[in-house]
Write a protein that binds this DNA or RNA. Structure first.
Lengths: 328, 328
DNA sequence: CCGGAAAATGTAAGCCTTTTCATTTTTGCT
DNA sequence: AGCAAAAATGAAAAGGCTTACATTTTCCGG
């Protein structure tokens, strides 16, 4: 139905080899020839068949971004940003991108199987067996927003510790010493990382962190608000609350509002991620900015390095920044 | 490097045809044979090469979701939802999904070219030449959240008019007759649709809509807030404002807060899309719920129908609902 | 236990490129 | 004009699978 290289060859009067070269390596044919070929191709609406091309060249120039459903989704602005950035970078480097939400990792591996995809970027918490499966298939793997110590895989993460340090430091500057954290159950990695960072940073500043200061909640505004209500309802309520991400922080704001607590006068609130909601709530939310864009780009770059046998740092940490707004 | 059908054939002692059948049509080989083949495959870590398969079958089982950068992005929760839903549906029907943000349509067409992709779902405002390009390549096209009258293409849209009717009806019930709209410059289609719906509905209710009642703004909270400030600063301020989407509505809320106007007592605010921010702002935002999930699913379904030569409705309208919350 | 139908398997062509190697044409000099 | 080297082109194999058609095996009733 679609024209093939043979049709063009026939119409233009050159061999198929020359047609092929004309399309994949234009400067290796004479001007006159090139013109003839392009003319014929134009007439026939020919364009090279990528499948056949992949078949012959044994490579697809295709990479995948896999999100493990269990703890991440594109509905999350955080991952949407990473995804966008990966998309952009992939296009720029002439790679096709396959995106898949892997409900179960078997499906994900299936998607990427068979060298259809030359490399994958794994977002969210990847599982070890998934990774080894890929490696056995000789598919390059890069982790984004996750680490797998013991595995020989490059990963790109943001500096959660540094971000936390900025956040706590800022609160201290504002005179808040009684700081609590509500960690939403986001992706296990991020949750854990931020949790640990909080403990560590508080320790470094010589501040207390007993059970009263740390709470878990589901990653919804309502759940966060409930948790915050408990925390704020008591006499010895904290002077500041760190949300595990912006949604949680928005929940805290909500709770404060219900209790009639003024923010930031009576309570400081800090979020994580610096997502668009920060600008929508009242007061606007101080938040730790995570450079998702950079993370995505670096993810693609690392994958490229891997695919081209260049050397590639195992761990890349992207710095975080604090965006101070009305809630502190 | 990877095992091929020949390796499996050799090890299991059957012909490559049988191996092929074992994988693509298991019940057409005898039990004993199937077992032998699978065993050999297991040992060799064989799995069929999808490229070669596509080559031989002349089909890829691959579809694409293309977003036209100019007016839509996955960063938009609205599109993220559609995207998610398409992803889910595509996976469920054993299709691979390629997602691409098309900065320029040439690139998009390129991505989908060459029967690498059997069909595309176009999100955001597609351009006519893009569509005809696809059609000439015999690539099926479905429009999501957009319409192209005059083109023979199925499209799936939400019932913006119905949603608007619900919103305005609700406001009237609350005793608000002086209703204004701030339309954000979202995707041209949506913006236009909602704008027209507003005019029409207001007309149907016999309400005024002079220049005072309709404003445009950029699709950011800040821009919306500025616009709302102007609208609300005057003596004859409206009693209710409809935001072109939730972000705009959030901006209105912000403006009201700055002016010390109590919502909903002194001003009612309604958004569109029913995105997650609705639950985060104070008061929570009444919004017209757009069933993005359904839109995505139907998009995929229509595409399937097209690919299977089944008949396929040209226009599918997904109903909208009103979610009433604190802002009215 | 045989014949014929049905089921299982095998053979080989085809899908559309790329690419190596051989061959032809062009180029630049003398 | 003639020659060697360089550039352009062509012929053909390879890439891994599916499938139509041919062949072999199995199954069943008589």
């Amino acid at each position: 139905m679609n024209a093939t290289i043979y049709d063009v060859s026939r119409l233009s009067g050159v061999s198929i080899a020359t047609v092929s070269r004309t399309f994949s390596n234009p400067d290796r044919v004479r001007d006159a020839t090139r013109q003839k070929v392009f003319e014929a191709a134009e007439i026939l609406h020919y364009s090279p068949n990528a499948i056949a091309r992949a078949m012959a060249r044994q490579r697809t120039d295709k990479i995948a971004f896999l999100i493990c459903k269990r703890d991440a989704t594109i509905l999350d602005e955080f991952y949407a940003r990473i995804c966008e950035s990966i998309m952009r970078r992939a296009i720029r480097s002439d790679r096709q991108l396959v995106i898949s939400t892997a409900a179960d990792w078997a499906q994900a591996a299936g998607t990427a199987q068979n060298k259809q995809v030359e490399g994958v970027i794994l977002g969210g918490s990847a599982q070890a067996d998934m990774v080894s499966e890929f490696q056995r298939k000789h598919i390059a793997v890069v982790l984004v927003n996750h680490r797998m110590p013991g595995f020989d895989i490059p990963c790109v993460v943001s500096d959660e510790y540094g971000g936390m340090r900025l956040a706590v430091g800022h609160l201290l500057q504002r005179g808040r010493r009684d700081i609590a954290m509500i960690a939403g159950r986001i992706s296990p990695y991020i949750t854990g990382e931020r949790y640990n960072a909080f403990l560590r940073v508080m320790g470094e500043y010589g501040l207390e962190t007993d059970a009263r200061h740390i709470r878990m909640c589901d990653p919804t505004v309502e759940s966060a608000a409930q948790t915050a209500l408990e925390l704020l309802g008591r006499k010895d309520r904290p002077a500041a609350i760190l949300g595990g991400n912006d949604v949680v922080a928005a929940g805290v704001l909500k709770a404060a509002h219900r209790l009639g607590l003024r923010v930031p006068e009576e309570l400081s609130v800090v979020g994580f991620d610096d997502s668009t909601v920060c600008g929508m709530v009242e007061p606007e939310l101080t938040s730790v900015h995570i450079d998702c864009r950079r993370i995505g780009e670096l993810g693609v770059d690392r994958l490229h390095a891997l695919l081209n046998d260049e050397d590639c740092p195992q761990v890349t940490v992207v710095p975080a920044e604090l965006r101070v707004r009305g809630s502190t």
